[in-house]
Design a protein around this nucleic acid. Structure first.
Length: 259
DNA sequence: ATGACTGGCCCTGCCAGA
């Protein structure tokens, strides 16, 4: 079962890239972030014609997440505790696998948190606390679980071209990284780090300052696996080529294969 | 050396992103 995650930075600007990606890589499940539209303006017909079911938790202008799946899904929109929160950043689906079982998949767009010193940073940390509480509950189900998305967290020095340049950023502050470790310490595994210790494996390059040609990247898009999902992990790929396309997203897809 | 972009929106400078 192939599962991928991709922050597309507007699904309407990226529909052609998306359809090409689905055709090329044939993921069974694709988690999208920053679709930047409501469900009624999502390019549903195009995606359905490519053979996918579509589940959207949309928002006008900002944020917005979706899950595309070849198989039918049982969908939950929003993270528990979202009652007062108008930002669409979480959608979850229970999806049949090839062995008569199920895999639970979430598409996550974790808040950026910059500028630090505004209300945005405590919002990020509080959102992470809610994700931690929800993940703790999901892990008690003892299912294959994949929490995939744009975490806006650089986990370690080896995940950034210049750690000093990012030292004060909301994506790399010690408190941000500590909360990410709390999530991992529940018993989740960063899929990429289950298969490689290499430095310089990036998933985002800023549009500005020639970040892509200079390879000034960061790794912030992650798939976190429950023990039952990790048992089945066969392969992890970062689809870096997508950053070299015309009019690319600033993020590239990350993709795993489960047995 | 420094700065360098992109998307959405009550259509046009401004917010947001990372």
């Amino acid at each position: 079962m192939r599962i991928a995650t991709w922050n597309v930075n507007s699904v309407r600007q990226r529909t052609e890239h998306l359809l090409r990606y689905l055709a090329d890589k044939q993921p069974d499940v694709l988690c999208l972030q920053e679709i930047k539209c409501l469900e009624e303006t999502f390019p549903r017909l195009e995606v359905e014609s490519a053979g996918y079911n579509v589940a959207v938790h949309g928002q006008k202008t900002f944020n917005g997440v979706a899950i595309l799946s070849k198989r039918p899904m049982e969908v939950t929109r929003g993270l528990p505790g979202d009652d007062e929160d108008t930002q669409s950043r979480y959608i979850e689906a229970l999806i049949p696998d090839d062995h008569g079982g199920v895999v639970r998949v979430a598409s996550i767009y974790l808040p950026n948190g910059n500028p630090v010193g505004t209300e945005k940073y405590p919002y990020k940390l509080a959102w992470m606390d809610r994700l931690i509480a929800h993940a703790r509950n999901l892990l008690t189900l003892e299912e294959p679980l994949v929490l995939a998305g744009d975490y806006n967290v650089i986990p370690e020095n080896r995940d950034v071209h210049d750690p000093a340049a990012w030292a004060g950023d909301a994506l790399f502050l010690p408190e941000t990284r500590a909360k990410f470790r709390t999530l991992l310490n529940l018993g989740l595994t960063d899929a990429l780090r289950a298969t490689s210790d290499d430095a310089g494996l990036y998933t985002f390059w800023d549009y500005q300052a020639g970040a892509w040609p200079r390879n000034k990247g960061i790794r912030i898009d992650h798939l976190l696996l429950s023990p039952q999902a990790l048992d089945r992990l066969e392969r992890v790929e970062i689809d870096k080529d997508m950053r070299a396309e015309e009019k690319p997203s600033d993020h590239v897809p990350v993709r795993i294969d489960l047995k």
